[in-house]
Design a protein around this nucleic acid. Structure first.
Lengths: 146, 146
DNA sequence: TTTAGTATTGCAACTTTATTGCATTTCTTT
DNA sequence: AAAGAAATGCAATAAAGTTGCAATACTAAA
């Protein structure tokens, strides 16, 4: 549960009309401790409200386009969505467990990455860096030892 | 074109029977300067030989499982395959162009990343780190300026 | 060399995830 | 209240990858 983000204000600041669906989706993403798939978001929403899958996809696309959320790749074929870096949510790497598929946010300081030289020398535009650490998570490791 | 890798030997070292398909696929991947999608590999193979899509997928899965090649995520929904780090192919980040979809290998030294502290403190097993830089490549930038 | 067993490949059907086109509903603004 | 724009729903489609099973090819023992 993020205490700091005013989601309605974030939407307004991006010039988006404030709709229930947009707000709900943004809250679900912002309040979750790890990035969620479209299906997870849809399922969560569906528990309380009748909403179409396509609407969820469209809102996610919109929020990504506006730079409010980030579309992350897991080691699987599904995208996951988390808050884009902002003043309350610093950029951070993710851990993907090959065994159970869980995605976990790592500490922003978990690994230090030096980007400045690339930004200076790269002949195109750099917008985003995604760092994903793959392996076996603590829980799965424990289970496999039993 | 990699002058240094003996692909047949790589397969043998992994205890895999040497089949034409496996060798061809490994050569296609190893000799390309950027990671390829399954479809690209299949299309390349198909030009000279009758082969089934599924066979390509199965061989790719096998080579990934054996750690010979890496399965990389682009910003899209398709996986790309490149040589796993070995003595001729050092680990390196990739650049993904949001505009044209091209994936480009960056210099292994392009950005320095400090992993040691994470490896020491992370409670699971770390097998691999994937770094993807997203943005607009040089070519697309040039076009958009015209 | 034959034969049994194993490994590899092909084919068709299917699954999952996401996207598109178009109709309908809802909202906004005058 | 009405017109126009924005948001949503529904059905169909697309793209990428996977599965089950049959057919073929390879390997190794008798």
């Amino acid at each position: 549960m993020c205490q700091h983000c005013d989601y309605a204000q974030i939407l307004e600041a991006a010039n988006l009309n404030l709709t229930t669906n947009r707000l709900k989706i943004l809250e679900i993403i912002g309040n979750n401790r790890s990035p969620l798939s479209a299906k997870e978001i849809y399922d969560t929403l569906s528990r309380n409200k009748d909403i179409n899958r396509v609407t969820v996809y469209r809102i996610l696309d919109l929020l990504v386009k506006k730079g409010i959320i980030n579309r992350l790749t897991s080691g699987e074929r599904t995208f996951h969505y988390g808050m884009a870096p902002n003043k309350n949510h610093p950029a951070h790497p993710h851990f993907y467990c090959k065994h159970c598929g869980a995605i976990e946010c790592l500490n922003p300081e978990a690994l230090h990455i030096e980007m400045e030289s690339l930004k200076k020398t790269y002949p195109g535009v750099i917008e985003n860096v995604e760092i994903r650490v793959d392996g076996i998570c603590k829980n799965c490791l424990k289970k496999s030892r039993q």
